[in-house]
Amino acid sequence: MTDPETPPTLEELLERYATLRDTIQGLETEKEELGRHIKAALEGGGHAETELYRAVLKVSRRVEYPLERFREVFGDVAALEVASIDKKKAEALAQAGDLDAELLKELAQVRETQALVLLPKTR
């Protein structure tokens, strides 16, 4: 057993770090796999809860504009201006009247992602 008064060596610190890293990576892999199974069951209408948590799917949406189609509709200058910009800037151009707001709205694509969320049951 090591002496509590003696600080660990660099090799001992590295060994502990590597052990923790490997453990965390293994746990993360297992957690992701379990999450995939739970999400699939919830998507199929399943219900899962423990004494402390209830599993729900949280849906988030992100609007994107496909670059080539955006360029076809609004031209090179507008595409260049918003190509490395988020939807807020494209919508700002539409609000300013530089882009047709209705065409921009029609061009929008909404992407959904689902995240598994554990809701505490004791609130």
Rank of each mutant, 00 (worst) to 15 (best):
L99D: 14
K58A: 15
L13K: 06
E91H: 11
E81I: 14
L104C: 05
K89A: 11
E102A: 09
V59G: 04
T19R: 13
K121P: 05
A78K: 10
E112T: 07
V82S: 06
P120D: 08
T6F: 13
A83E: 08
F70I: 09
V56R: 12
K88G: 12
G35N: 11
T9M: 01
L20N: 02
L52H: 12
P66N: 15
V59P: 04
E28Y: 06
T23R: 15
D76K: 09
A78C: 08
T50F: 04
Y53H: 10
Q25H: 08
V82A: 09
G46W: 01
Y53I: 00
G97L: 02
K39H: 02
A101M: 07
A79I: 01
E64A: 08
D98C: 00
L104W: 03
E30N: 06
V117G: 02
Y17T: 09
P7Q: 10
K31N: 04
K121E: 01
R36W: 10
A101Q: 08
R21T: 10
A48T: 03
P120V: 12
L20W: 04
D100V: 00
D86P: 07
K89L: 10
L13M: 15
F70K: 08
P4M: 14
T50A: 10
T19Q: 09
Q109R: 12
L52P: 00
E102M: 05
